[in-house]
Simulated scan of single mutants.
Amino acid sequence: MTDKLIDHHQSARGEPRVALVTCTELSDLDPDDRLVLAPLAARGIAAEAVVWDDPAVDWPAYDLAVLRSPWDYALRRDEFVAWARTVPALANSAEVVRWNTDKRYLAELSAAGVPTVPTAWVAPGEGWVAARSGEYVVKPAVSAGSQDTGRYDLADPEHRALAVAHVRRLSDAGRLTMVQPYLHAVDTAGETALLFLAGPDGLRFSHAIRKGPMLTGPDLGVEGLYKVEEISARTAAPAQLAVAEQALAAVPGGTGQLLYARVDLIPGPDGAPVLVELELTEPSLFIGYADGAPDRLADAIVTHLAGPA
């Protein structure tokens, strides 16, 4: 089956060429992403890491460009979306990139009936009055790797002042701010990420992982692009899979266009899973935490190389 799929798209150059799109800081790819290189080679596919904003790259020379770790785009989102439109064969697509790199998509999914974490939006120039109690998360609508994200206990006057300053800092930079209640279940149950990969008959559930809590307090502007995550394998519960399927069903254009998807869930106050993020642009796929996942990702890439049946 694999050879047949590749033959369907075999380029005149010989073996298919795939660009695994990354950023300068990870020019050799994230270690998890490197796990797909050998399975791709075994399938006759030449894959290499390529930096998204390298002006010397000839994108039409690749049969497929797969977004993996271009994690420096957040402060240049417009440039990144414009770049995506110039890549002839991009997964996930430029239109998915445009929609998914602005977390206002959460409002669309909520309106479609997907259980999502409640979110207040503060536009640049708008005032924001902090509540007098409760724990909240403040973050920009465009971000990657928990950048510019903080957790605040608004019953604490110092935290409340820091939260107000955080919103003002984002506003002054012209960035839309999100304010969400902190879901305390993440401290015990953790966050569940459900990973889906393309197959011949559409997007399929591949595996799930547990992420431990990452936010310990206010954002104090500490430098650093990536934060350390506590990751372990997890078995997805039926209720989690149901919410994931509901969220994916609401993606504009449908799931047939997707090479991968990651659905991040946390138990809400009643214990039922709620969506915190639907990652379709550059998510870590955690393929090192599930048997066979690197091969499933390689097969997903083969499926996209084959194009429409």
Rank of each mutant, 00 (worst) to 15 (best):
T2F: 10
I6W: 03
D7W: 12
H9M: 13
R17W: 08
A19T: 09
S27L: 04
D30K: 02
L40M: 10
L40A: 06
R43P: 04
G44D: 09
E48S: 12
E48K: 02
D54K: 05
A56H: 07
W59Q: 07
D63F: 11
L67T: 10
P70L: 06
L75S: 10
L75V: 09
L75P: 01
V81I: 14
A82T: 14
W83K: 15
W83F: 08
A84H: 11
A84G: 12
A91M: 13
S93H: 06
A94V: 00
E95W: 05
V97C: 13
V97M: 11
V97A: 14
K103T: 03
Y105N: 00
L106I: 15
L106W: 13
A107W: 03
A107E: 13
E108R: 15
L109F: 13
L109M: 11
A111K: 13
V114P: 05
V114Y: 05
V114M: 08
P115G: 12
P124S: 10
G125H: 14
G125C: 13
G127V: 05
W128Y: 15
A131Q: 12
G134A: 07
G134Y: 03
E135I: 01
S143E: 11
S146I: 02
Y152L: 01
A155L: 01
E158R: 11
R160V: 00
L162A: 15
V164K: 08
L170D: 06
S171L: 05
D172R: 15
G174A: 10
R175K: 14
L176I: 10
L195T: 13
F196Q: 04
G199K: 02
P200N: 02
F205D: 07
S206K: 05
G212V: 00
M214A: 15
L215V: 00
D219P: 00
G221Q: 08
L225H: 13
V228W: 04
E229G: 00
E230P: 00
T235V: 15
A237L: 15
A244R: 09
Q246H: 11
A247F: 09
V251M: 10
V251K: 06
T255M: 07
Q257W: 01
D264M: 05
L265D: 07
I266F: 05
G268Q: 11
D270C: 05
L275K: 04
L278Y: 08
L278Q: 10
S284Q: 04
Y289H: 14
D291A: 15
A293F: 04
I301L: 09
T303I: 02
A306M: 02
